[in-house]
Nucleic acid binder design. Structure first.
Lengths: 341, 341
DNA sequence: CCGTTTATGCTAAGTTTGAGCATAATAGGG
DNA sequence: CCCTATTATGCTCAAACTTAGCATAAACGG
C-alpha cells in the first residue's frame, strides 16, 4: 500500500494548496470586499480581479492560517484580526488555466473581517461593494429588478434546454427553491447555491471562461448583470463568504469585528442590513440589541446626521461568557416578493 | 515568482491531502460513529482506531468528495448519502508520525450521515457511541459526573501551571467560557473548543502521543475518562462533527438523513436528544414538530413500547421548498449545572 | 420660530415557548 | 376481566418575545 515519493507523484497524490482570503469590511451601508486588480497580461490567460492568495508552504508555515496571514500581509499590508476557514474547493477545471496544462488547484478559502479604521487601499487594491458582483442578493430596496427581468427568463431557458422531462422538472424545482420562486421563500443565506446554479446554467462569466460555453450575444447581456469574471474560483469563495457571514451574524457577535470601537445603533443596524441584504425595523432592532445586552452606552453622542444626536455605544466584550449564542437575531421585515419562472 | 516543479518541491509547496470521513448513525438513543480498528502493529507508531480515510488522487478524482466516497466505499462498503465537508486541518505535528519523518499532513474532514438501515458492521469496523470518546458532552442524565470531579481540577492545575499572571487569567477565562463554569453557560455546540482546550492542557491521549507530554500517573487517570487515543487528528475531526451536527439540526432538517423511512415522534425526539446531548420536553417537542410541518402521519401505528401505540410519521420531502430554515429548533430543558474551577 | 430629520420611548396585539395537568390506548399480572 | 404500569397524545395557562406603529425628543436650516 505504501508508495515511494516518485510513485505517489506519478499517481497524482501530491498537490499544491492555494490559500485565499476574502477580506470583508463595511463602509456605511456598503459591504466591501478586497480585490487585487488583474495584473497579469490578458494573453497569459488570467482573467479578472482576484482575492489575495498564495500557495501553502508546508515547510515554513506551522498552520494553514499562518500561511494565509503571511500572504495577505505580503499582498495587501492589512493586518488581519478575525479569520475563519470557510471551505476547501478541489473541483476540476474551475480554473481555465488548468485545461491548458496548469496544475490541479485545491484551494482553501478563508473569511477575514477588517475593521473600517484599518482600511486603506493601495494602488493594486480595490474595495468593491460585494453586490456589484451579486446584484440579485441585495433586497434592501425591494426585490432586485434583474432577478425577474433577467435571471428568471435566462434560467427558464436553461430549464427548457434539457432534453429529458424529469431533468427539466428537477431543474425547475431547483431554480424555484434557490431563488424563492413559485411559493418557495427567498433564503438570504443560500448565496452559494444560487451562484452554483447560475454557474451550471452558464450564466456567469466564469462558466464561459472555463471553456464549456462560448459567450454569445444573449449571455453577453447576462454577464452585464451577473458581473465581470473573477480569477479562478474566487467568486465562488465570495459567494461562500456572503452566505456564511449572513448565517453567522444571527448567532455570533461577529458584526463587531467590522465596527469601529464606538458606533451608533443605527450604524450597527446599517452594517447588519448591508450583510443580510434586507432591511430591519428600526425601533425593534434597537430593543433587540439593548435587550440582548450586546452593547453598552459610552455616554458620548454623535451629531452628524442632521437630526437628533445619536448615542454612541460599544460592544460588551464579556457577553461571550454569558450566553451560548449571542448574535443578532434578525427580525425580518414584511414584503418578500416572488415571481414566476 | 514562478518556480519549476523541482524548486516547488524543495520549498514544500506540494503536499498530500488526506480525506477522512466521520460516518454518523443513530441507534435508538445512541449516536454512533464508525471506526476502523487499529490494524497496524503498534511498533509502527500508529495509535488507536481511526476514521475511514485515504489520500486525494488529483489525477483520478474529479472532486474531493468523489475521492472521499471512493475511499469510504473501499474501506467500509457503506454507500454514502448525505455528505458535507467540515474543515481542513493543516497543523504541524498533530500526527506523531510526522515527527519521525512522516509527511506533513493536510486533512480534509467530512461528515457523512448513514441511515440505520444501511448500517452493517464488518469485522474491521466498529460503530461506537460517540460519548465514549467525549463523555463530558452527554448531559441527558444531568451534568456529566466527570466534568466537575475530573476535568475541573485537571484544568485548574493547567491554569495554575502558567508562570505569568495574565496568562493564568486568560486560561481561566477560556476554561470557564468553554466549559460553562462560573456563570458562563454550557454551549452544546462548542465541542471542538472544549477538545482543543483539553488537548492544549495535555489532558487527552493524543496530546501525549504527539510527544509534548510523557503520560504520568495523573494523566493516565485522566486518559481513562477522556478516552483512548485515536489515530492522527481523527478525534479532532469527530469533535468538529459533533459540534457541526448539533448546530445544523437546529436549522436544517438533516436529522431525517439518520432516521428510517417511518418513525414515531418519540424516536425522532430521541435521535435529536442523542445528537444534542440534552433532553427535550416531550409534549412541546411534538407540538413543535407538528407545527413546523416537517413530518406527516402515515396512518400506521407501532406497538413495541408496552404503552399506547405510537403513530408512525414520515418526513415531508417538500418542506425544503417552503421555508428558509426548516430545522428542529431545540427548546432546552431546565437545570443547567455549573461548578467552580 | 417652524418644518424637517433622525433618535428614542412606548404600547397594543399577535405569536411562540415552557411547564404541567389530563386523557387515551396498549401490555401484563393477578 | 379489572387494575396498574407505561407510553402516547391533547390541551391549557402564563410568561416571554415579536411585529407594527404611534408618540415624543433633540438636533438642523432657513
Amino acid at each position: 500500500m505504501k508508495m515511494s515519493k516518485k510513485q505517489s507523484l506519478k499517481s497524482g497524490f501530491e498537490v499544491q494548496i492555494e490559500l485565499s482570503a476574502a477580506l470583508v469590511a463595511i463602509e456605511g451601508d456598503s459591504p466591501r470586499i478586497m480585490l487585487l486588480r488583474d495584473q497579469a497580461p490578458a494573453a497569459k490567460g488570467a482573467v479578472g480581479a482576484g482575492l489575495p492568495s498564495g500557495p501553502f508552504d508546508a515547510v515554513n508555515d506551522r498552520t494553514l492560517e499562518e500561511g494565509l496571514r503571511r500572504w495577505v500581509a505580503q499582498q495587501s499590508g492589512i493586518p488581519l484580526g478575525y479569520v475563519e476557514q470557510l471551505y476547501t474547493f478541489g473541483d476540476r477545471f474551475r480554473d481555465p488555466l488548468e485545461r491548458r496544462g496548469g496544475p490541479r488547484p485545491v484551494s482553501v478559502g478563508y473569511l477575514a473581517l477588517v475593521r473600517q479604521s484599518d482600511l486603506r487601499a493601495r494602488d493594486a487594491e480595490v474595495w468593491s461593494d460585494w453586490y456589484r458582483h451579486f446584484p440579485w442578493e441585495d433586497w434592501r430596496t425591494g426585490p432586485p429588478a434583474t432577478l425577474d427581468s433577467v435571471l428568471a427568463p435566462a434560467l427558464k431557458a436553461w430549464v427548457d434546454s434539457s432534453g429529458e422531462r424529469s431533468d427539466r422538472i428537477r431543474r425547475k424545482d431547483r431554480a424555484d427553491t434557490t431563488f424563492g420562486w413559485n411559493g418557495a421563500t427567498w433564503d438570504n443565506e443560500r448565496v452559494l447555491e444560487r451562484y452554483e446554479l447560475l454557474y451550471e446554467a452558464g450564466l456567469v462569466a466564469e462558466a464561459a471562461a472555463d471553456g464549456r460555453f462560448t459567450p454569445d450575444e444573449r449571455t453577453q447581456l447576462i454577464f452585464a448583470i451577473t458581473g465581470a469574471a473573477m480569477m479562478k474560483d474566487h467568486r465562488r469563495i465570495l459567494a461562500t463568504v456572503m452566505g456564511r457571514l449572513r448565517g453567522k451574524i444571527k448567532y455570533r457577535p461577529v458584526i463587531f469585528e467590522l465596527m469601529p470601537p464606538t458606533f451608533t445603533l443605527f450604524q450597527l443596524q446599517q452594517a447588519i442590513e448591508a450583510l443580510a441584504g434586507t432591511l430591519l425595523h428600526k425601533q425593534n432592532f434597537r430593543r433587540l440589541v439593548a435587550h440582548e445586552g450586546l452593547v453598552e452606552p459610552t455616554g458620548q453622542v454623535q451629531t452628524l446626521t442632521g437630526g437628533r444626536p445619536a448615542e454612541l455605544f460599544q460592544f460588551r466584550r464579556d457577553v461571550i461568557r454569558e450566553r451560548p449564542a449571542p448574535g443578532v437575531r434578525l427580525p425580518v421585515r414584511r414584503g418578500a416578493g416572488r415571481s414566476q419562472l
